[in-house]
Write a protein that binds this DNA or RNA. Structure first.
Lengths: 172, 172
DNA sequence: CTCGTTAGCTTCGAATTCGAAGCACAAGTG
DNA sequence: CACTTGTGCTTCGAATTCGAAGCTAACGAG
């Protein structure tokens, strides 16, 4: 039974709106920059960045990539397919787990990443950090860190008994 | 000539990632709640909220709505069309400006809004504000306010001479 | 008044996104 | 080993999104 929660006070409401608004605007600007500079979507850029910058080997399992990116699994497959078709990554079965897929960035992928990264940095610096001092940025990061933790550890839904979900084995 | 900008220091990079991540997660959670509680998309909810809560008359021009929402004009038309088909708003030509369209929320629209609002508040409170004190929320709002201003006042692109943009007159 | 320009919104086609359903491999149980 | 359950990823169809193109109304200059 949904107990009517207390409405958000103006301060929180403002913070909520500002957060969503800033993120949307920033995302749109970044997307535009990426499209013009390197024909990349935001998701593709995130994947390349994760592979090229966060990984010493340049490889990741699809699942690991999905953890870093919010989007749905199917969307991830789609974008990874586009990246592969563009020659920026390769997909191969994982050595340990036959059903896993390992995605590896190619040299062309690294080159493309290096190509768009400066512009990306420039846009983020200009739009997000121009009005913020270094101390502000630090405060923002420290404010958001626990929120991120909290969201990532909270299940998507509280109740909802998950109607016998998942993979039915014997298909045909 | 894109002068290579200095890369983002770790603090700013962390703030940037945290911001985008938190906003994405929150948006997904909110979208899910809205879909389950009231068959509304996020954009539709924003439009209804703007009409039902922000406007004394319950009406707005399309342009005013577009200013509050980030999405494209065509997307706005699409969602407004869906809302109209669902009977939650009406669209009529603006009295002053014959080419403007005024969107007005209906009683059914207000009812639907009242229906989903508690759940929406609950999700936002739980996901975003549970790990934040009231002072934290205030700090967050004050940090983001100038950023929002800055983004909204900055043109989408700096250079790019806008190739003779807009409406070409003699179509046929 | 007539022409050229701008503003406001819609239509169109292509691309992206999601959730549900499906398949193949892995792991646990008897 | 046979069988059941769970994990990892992909395919599929529907819905949403965007940008470009188009149309009508308002505006400005000659």
């Amino acid at each position: 039974m949904p107990v009517t929660p207390p409405p958000l006070d103006p301060v929180r409401l403002g913070a909520y709106f500002a957060l969503m608004d800033v993120a949307s605007l920033l995302r749109h600007a970044v997307e535009q920059q990426l499209r013009e500079a390197g024909e990349l979507s935001y998701v593709q850029f995130q994947l390349l960045a994760r592979l090229g910058l966060d990984s010493p080997t340049g490889s990741h399992r699809m699942t690991d990539l999905a953890d870093g990116v919010v989007y749905s699994r199917s969307g991830l497959t789609y974008q990874a397919g586009l990246l592969e078709k563009a020659g920026l990554v390769t997909r191969s079965p994982s050595p340990d787990d036959e059903r896993g897929v390992t995605v590896t960035i190619t040299d062309a992928g690294r080159a493309r990443l290096a190509e768009v990264l400066p512009g990306h940095t420039e846009v983020v610096s200009r739009l997000l950090f121009e009005p913020l001092s270094h101390a502000d940025a630090e405060a923002l990061a420290q404010l958001l860190a626990p929120v991120r933790e909290h969201m990532r550890s909270t299940p998507p839904r509280s109740a909802a008994p998950r109607r016998r979900g998942g993979a039915r084995p014997g298909g045909s």
